[in-house]
């Protein structure tokens, strides 16, 4: 849900009237860096799903599959974040606006489009964990 909020509200706000809107976004993030949030909760999420995978490992092969799939999907999100989003964050928030208006416009549109993919990966990871828990409770009762 955080990711969907980022697309619908944050990224649309940054890109709504470039160059003025990106300057407003830079001013807004001047004192608190939003990466602080993701740098804490991203690793916690990855660690929790890894622990779930390890602790449910012996229960059944299908549980391994579903928790493993969640782990893989979240790992893909981390990879996408470093390989795709961070380079565009650099363009959006550090490049000179006057000299790179077109690149900033392009980066903003690409960021929004790809963030729908990132949200879909996260949703698939959550659903896969739901399925894992469902199988676990069916096995137990």
């Amino acid at each position: 849900m955080v990711s969907i909020y980022n697309t619908l509200i944050d990224a649309n706000s940054w890109g709504s009237d470039i160059p003025a809107s990106i300057q407003t976004a830079r001013d807004y993030y001047k004192y608190v860096d939003p990466r602080n949030f993701f740098a804490i909760f991203g690793p916690i999420n990855q660690l929790l799903i890894l622990l779930a995978l390890i602790f449910f490992w012996k229960d059944s092969v299908s549980l391994r599959f579903y928790f493993g799939l969640s782990f893989l999907l979240y790992a893909i999100i981390v990879f996408l974040t470093f390989a795709y989003f961070i380079p565009r964050d650099q363009i959006l928030f550090t490049w000179s606006i006057q000299d790179h208006t077109e690149q900033i416009r392009a980066a903003s549109a690409q960021w929004i489009a790809m963030n729908w993919i990132r949200s879909a990966l996260g949703l698939a990871g959550v659903l896969s964990s739901f399925k894992g828990l469902d199988i676990y409770y069916k096995l137990k009762h």
């Binding site: 849900m1 909760f41 916690i44 999420n45 929790l48 799903i49 622990l51 779930a52 602790f55 449910f56 928790f67 969640s70 979240y74 996260g122 990871g125 959550v126 964990s129 739901f130 894992g132 828990l133 676990y136």
Partner: peptide, 30 residues
């Protein structure tokens, strides 16, 4: 008897721990 009770307690704690990890991952990811 006591050994069975302790065994059940350990199983319950282990079960809670497992679902805490799984549900925790769902809550944080969602």
């Amino acid at each position: 008897m006591e050994a069975i009770a302790i065994n059940q307690l350990i199983r319950s704690v282990f079960h809670l721990l497992k679902i805490t990890f799984a549900i925790g991952a769902i809550v944080v990811a969602a």
